[in-house]
Design a protein around this nucleic acid. Sequence first.
RNA 1: GUCAGGGUAGCUCAGCUGGUUAGAGCACUGGUCUCAUAAGCCGGGGGUCGGGGGUUCAAGUCCCCCCUCUGACACCA
Length: 646
Amino acid sequence: MNKYITTPIYYVNGEAHIGHAYTTFIADTMARYERLKGNDTYFLTGTDEHGQKIEESAQKNGKPIQEFADEISATFKNLWDEFEISYDKFIRTTDADHKLGVQKAFEVMYAKGDIYKDFYEGHYCVSCETFFPETQLIDGEFCPDCGRTTSIVKEESYFFKLSKYEDRLLKHYEENPDFILPRSRANEVINFVKGGLRDLSVTRTSFTWGVDMPESLNDDKHVMYVWLDALMNYVTALGYGKDDANMNYWPASTHLIGKDILRFHAIYWPAFLMSLDMPLPEHIGVHGWWTRDGEKMSKSKGNVISPKEVADAYGVENLRYFMLREVPFGQDGDFSQRAFIDRINSELSNDLGNLLNRIIGMSGKYSEFIIDSVNVEKYHSKELNSMNEALGNLDGFMKNMQTHRYLEELWKLFSIGNKAIEEYAPWAKMKEDKKDEALATVALVANILAKASIMLSPVMPKTTATIADALNFKINNDSYNELIIDKKLLKLFTIKKVPPLFPRVEEPLMVEAPIAESNPPKVEKQKELKQDNSKETDNLIEIGQFFETSLKIGTVLESEEVPKSKKLLKLQVDVGDETPRQVVAGIKEFYSAESLVGTQVCVVANLKPAKLMGMISEGMLLAAKDEDGLCLVRPEKPKKAGTPIG
RNA sequence: GUCAGGGUAGCUCAGCUGGUUAGAGCACUGGUCUCAUAAGCCGGGGGUCGGGGGUUCAAGUCCCCCCUCUGACACCA
């Protein structure tokens, strides 16, 4: 059977973070699991390199775009190589073959009438060079960004008839309840589709760093929109549009993605495939995000975890185990060294590693390290049964990507082993001259470890290979068939002594990033500033530019909640003009309407008016927001309304 | 605000179509073996299953209302 597992292609806008590693670990585990079962498996990962953002980032770094993309792409590839990720192909959207495939797809959809050239018609603000939907316009006419008059302008664009596939998509979700996993994500998608789909603009004329249009269309003003380009990677990697060399792997078994790109994979991608008359992937697996010690990770907070740093400190395999064991698939997970260390010590060191040592010790003392399964069934049918029961449950968990349940279930084996040793106490049996029984128990545990290692190997390939080596067998499809499917026992062998697999971790191996306590310590502030400074140095402005912003002290005269709004307060603010200014501010979650009346705030006074919930906002309040909430910036002492700030 | 999904032991969670004294792991604690990485094993404490009504012989499990959390969308200037 063919299996095809993919990760998203990672955007080359920054280096790999823990989330990238997580996705890749899950995918790698699934791919290894399928191979173990003897399925012909293709595992794809790679990088997404087109689009305006990349163009801009390269410019900022003063590098040719391709060179910039090459560099970042290489950091991903190198990291995965270092982590021994078992990908079959690392695709880059700048690969020539990929571009060919995208163009081919475009031609097919175009020929079919699913892509048509039209005009992106909308209210266009010339000075902002942007289109705005009517709902955002102020008084149906003015630009929400600059307040100038907009005009109805048509810009040429190619569109994909997404709307045409609405019904077919809904039908597919309904008929394939496990198309999107976990279920809760499917509901989100269904709701969104039911809300109606608009045709998708699939080309851009505003930048050039993208896949060119197919020659047959003879239209080089446009380049492909990045998502059409990016999503196609899943088939161009198999040779679509070129030689179809590996198209026998299509459709994909699982596209693994993070929750941020759900819509593209669950709506656009299936629609594209329908248009190309190609089968849809079996599953879209949607995982959550990682927090750190309960808090969101962010660059400004300085608490971002580098996967390499963690792997260097704790070992890649331990990290893989932790990430897959700690969090229920689909949910957000929390990374803390404490939780990590607990799992290493209690599950890896105590339950597993120590168990291996126990039988090495006993076999050495009782039988010169020789392990013989001959009497296992005679004395331990009870243990064998419960072991087989747990082993039988594993496949279902993996199919649903419930890696945490999978590992939890697998760990029952070690418990069975530890309990058996205790219950049958081979040392006592030896004294009672029941060597057969003593050795049977040791052999039972050896078999438990062997079988568990096979099933653990997709998660921890190297460590389990070491265990297998100690137990004189190799983990592969053959041993899987023999020991797991046919439930056979290990043949007579001599166990090899190995050093402890999982040394206990007594204290954190990484320096903790400063974490905000109840009162944010100064350290964090400093760090934040430092980061910002270093970031801002290439982005300095002239003082004149600063003074283009008119900041004034304002006194809040009136304040009321905007009905039906979660975030907005409508304020009347005196900024020294004859009439008060109406300012709509998104601070309702942090300030009650009454508490603001009579207080002073800092107002950006020459901001172009904007329309929020249909109300004009003629200014903006200065406020600072971080993970702990938002606070307004206010004058230290009362000042007359309208006092300029500078 | 609309929609979706939650709120079960200190923590992380399991409890399918309602049915005996509500479970697991971790943490805490008492005991105990010695093959082992001060690991293992046995036992214990601890829950008004968010709140309030209702249906039923019987509800964590079904219905209604409320509180609260998370996510998506609609307004974060």
